[in-house]
Design a protein around this nucleic acid. Structure first.
Lengths: 200, 200
DNA sequence: AAAAATTGGTTCCACAAGGAATTGACTGCG
DNA sequence: CGCAGTCAATTCCTTGTGGAACCAATTTTT
């Protein structure tokens, strides 16, 4: 096959695709016009789990360049920037909360937080009433990193949505919200939790 | 944004949040009814890159349990199952093609393929005219793994979409296709490619 | 047609990631 | 009030990952 250069994404992986039965006009036809290798095409458009394939693909194409840039610009690993981003969303949370929400192991977060403190991007304040917990906050330097990075993240999201009208974006947002909601209700079988391991 | 976590995989990670200001009816209100921690809520609903945050979240919640199950049921790592899944989509592709499309490094794929061959799930056939290339195929045993696993993948996708009507699903599929298309057109800046690293 | 450049795949190796066990701080039960 | 159970965070240690170098088969250049 051909393969052309393109991606180099990295994350996700797996399945993708969808099958041939896409309503025309949705992209399958357009895709084939792109110089896209046949396998990626199959992953996205002829996959029995086409929806999953597509958002996995998007996650990959979104995260890869952004975190690559973060690494190169700031010398921060993905997990480290995740901490910074998280603190910008909710100041004063603990490492455990980030761990629980993002599914990164606790020890990985511990390392990331400690490095960020050493670099002066994050400050730690031990809870007076429960001295186990450590509330984290961004330092001015940490906030500066976030401020510089955010526009890139916003811009790429904007590029993703570029082909959509305002109405379409709202529709998409609403439908995605429903899907996210559905996932909250999925009871995760015990057996699936243990061995997992991110992402990646 | 987001990020997904990496479960053990390595994938995902990142931002999250919560808070309160989403257009009503989209899920924010429903969400707050769920027993969901505040930070995750912020990540999903008060995030400047909310769309990215949501599909990252979905990727995490989708991949993690499934690949965890694969690991436990078959003793196969994520990348190994990715190979199997890929071959089911397109028989006879090479390791390089899978690498290019999924963004896993070549050597990682090399290892995965060799292990799968050793386990008898994959067979390799060297191209007669270009003896560098090795076309891969599923053995009956490999196909059996796929056949057993696929229903799980389909079922979880179905759960994700459970709250959507048929019309809504089609709308979502079409909009997602447009977004995927837009990502094809993004020119990946050179600088972002080098240092990246999946997700894990 | 030899030399240089490319490409698929593998091997080497340094390092990071994460499971498991540990420490320190609370909580709850009896 | 003391002992078992829990929980945040950390440390230890093994393993897997992925960058870089390498090998082999081709292709291109001159």
């Amino acid at each position: 096959m051909m393969v052309l250069s393109r991606p180099k994404l990295q994350d996700t992986a797996a399945n993708d695709g969808e099958s041939g039965a896409l309503p025309e006009g949705t992209g399958a036809d357009l895709l084939s016009r792109q110089r896209l290798d046949a396998f990626t095409h199959a992953r996205l458009w002829k996959n029995p789990c086409g929806f999953a394939a597509r958002f996995n693909y998007l996650a990959l194409r979104y995260n890869q360049p952004l975190y690559g840039w973060v690494e190169e610009r700031f010398g921060l690993a993905r997990i480290e920037f995740v901490v910074i981003y998280s603190l910008s969303l909710q100041d004063g949370i603990t490492a455990s909360e980030i761990s629980a929400s993002t599914a990164f192991p606790k020890n990985t977060l511990s390392r990331a937080v400690n490095r960020l403190i050493k670099l002066g991007y994050v400050v730690r304040r031990t809870d007076a009433i429960d001295r186990r917990q450590q509330f984290l906050s961004l330092s001015p330097a940490g906030r500066a990193v976030y401020e510089e990075a955010l526009p890139r993240f916003v811009a790429l999201e904007e590029e993703m949505l570029a082909l959509l009208s305002l109405v379409e974006r709202e529709t998409l947002a609403a439908l995605m919200a429903k899907v996210v909601l559905a996932m909250f209700e999925v009871d995760v079988p015990e057996s699936t939790l243990p061995t997992s391991r991110p992402e990646n």
